[in-house]
Design a protein around this nucleic acid. Structure first.
Length: 286
DNA sequence: CGCATTTCCTGGAGGC
DNA sequence: TGCCTCCAGGAAATGC
């Protein structure tokens, strides 16, 4: 399930493989996965040059010239790979575009179709909705920004999962970060002390950085742009480890539902503190 | 307002 | 071997 580290891995690899290249022939097997500009991709893409590829939230953004953005959301099972044009075409490959002069092509495959492609042309206010209207980037967030996000009365797990609050965290990295910080997933965000909030931000950053170094987590479907699996799943401390011993204290990992999702935590490392700092007292203005 | 539930969708797992 | 049901989950819409 591609979250921030997986999207970052793919974006870096595509930056390396595509930047400066010109796009060629397009093959679109399904039109219903494309959103935004209604002009067919077969008319828009050939001849355009890739300026750069980067990540925003969980999305991979291909910036083109003349100005245009191709935004890929990978959903649950989305794959974005660069392969030789003659490589066998897997089922559910919805989109292909030739990368001129390389013998390769970019392919988008997504069996469950929770993902999609957003086409943004110059001057479209759609840009805002896709890229700007997501929350803070956790790797770049300052303590002050993060404290601002936490100032709402919400379950910390639900808040971290909310893309309009913090961009890029999904189920895996939420649970891993909360464990690293010793915070129970049902803790009310606005009750965390400044010290624990800082510890949480540091845990999120270190967890994401280590995951990026491992090229993400592969549980089932995820592959990077080269078609390879990530390896961070070997370092998971709680995710999908229900009943197994905590890697820190040996206590049996528990599973509950929070924010409508399976949520894994260690009941000993992550005690449910309900009252840390008195709420309401000296509420800072927003 | 916040949280749970439902919807989308497919393939893998488990039961028989 | 094969059929059936259940289930996972990101995001958005709906319900309480």
């Amino acid at each position: 399930m591609p979250e921030l580290p997986e999207a970052e891995t793919i974006a870096r690899q595509l930056q390396r493989d595509l930047a400066g290249r010109t796009l060629g022939a397009v093959h679109l097997a399904r039109t219903d996965i494309v959103h935004g500009d209604p002009t067919p991709l077969g008319e828009l893409l050939p001849g355009r040059k890739v300026v750069r590829v980067y990540r925003r939230a969980k999305q991979v953004v291909i910036e083109l010239a003349p100005p245009m953005q191709l935004i890929f959301r990978l959903g649950m099972t989305g794959r974005l790979t660069v392969v030789p044009v003659e490589a066998e075409i897997e089922t559910h490959t919805h989109f292909r575009v030739v990368v001129a002069g390389t013998g390769g092509e970019l392919r988008f495959r997504d069996p469950r179709r929770f993902g999609g492609i957003w086409v943004i042309r110059e001057g479209s206010d759609y840009v805002g909705r896709r890229l700007a209207e997501v929350g803070i980037e956790p790797l770049e967030a300052t303590t002050r920004q993060f404290r601002g996000v936490l100032s709402r009365r919400r379950q910390i797990k639900a808040l971290l999962m909310d893309q309009s609050a913090v961009a890029g965290l999904g189920n895996i990295y939420c649970d891993e970060s909360l464990h690293a910080a010793g915070i129970h997933p049902l803790t009310q965000a606005d009750t965390l002390t400044a010290e624990r909030a800082l510890r949480l931000l540091r845990s999120i950053k270190s967890t994401l950085r280590r995951a990026i170094r491992c090229k993400g987590s592969t549980l089932m479907d995820y592959r990077d742009a080269e078609g390879r699996e990530g390896s961070f799943q070997r370092l998971h401390r709680v995710y999908q480890r229900e009943g197994m011993p905590c890697k820190t204290c040996k206590t049996s990992i528990r599973r509950i539902t929070a924010a409508g999702r399976s949520t894994f935590f260690c009941p000993k490392c992550q005690r449910h503190v309900t009252r840390e700092r008195s709420r309401g007292s000296s509420s800072r203005s927003g």
